[in-house]
């Protein structure tokens, strides 16, 4: 499976790749932790903060329903934010690295 024509170690230690790696790690973990915490607020709220969930805010619509609906909005927002960042930044950075490899500048 290994390709002897590519020096993987060199790419891994290249500053360009390191920059991509740092940015990506920070961004992905931030989103992941936020989304997990936000998701688990729903079962926790429904179990331990029922009085809060029962408050009616918009006709019969209560905090619980709005919070559950907000989970959808948050999930979609995370998807949008990630794809924007990846399309604009990460793809360009990795394309740059690929070009360097193909042109023999990173061997």
């Amino acid at each position: 499976m290994s390709d002897p024509n590519v020096n993987w170690l060199a790419i891994d230690s290249n500053p360009k790749f390191q920059a991509l790696h740092r940015k990506k790690t920070f961004f992905l973990w931030g989103l992941m932790v936020f989304s997990t915490v936000y998701y688990f607020l729903l079962p926790i709220g429904a179990a331990y903060y029922q009085d809060l969930f029962k408050i009616k805010v918009w006709g019969v619509v209560n905090v619980g329903i709005l919070f559950a609906l907000s989970e959808f909005v948050v999930a979609w927002t995370i998807a949008y934010v990630y794809s924007r960042k990846a399309n604009k930044e990460f793809d360009a950075m990795s394309q740059d690295i690929i070009n360097d490899v193909n042109n023999g500048r990173m061997k």
């Binding site: 559950a68 989970e71 999930a75 998807a79």
Partner: peptide, 21 residues
């Protein structure tokens, strides 16, 4: 009612893990 709807949220949030990692 509500509990059924709450159940469905987890099935969507699951895709954030799929997307990100």
């Amino acid at each position: 009612g509500y509990d059924g709807f709450m159940y469905s949220v987890g099935w969507l949030v699951a895709y954030i893990t799929v997307l990100l990692v």
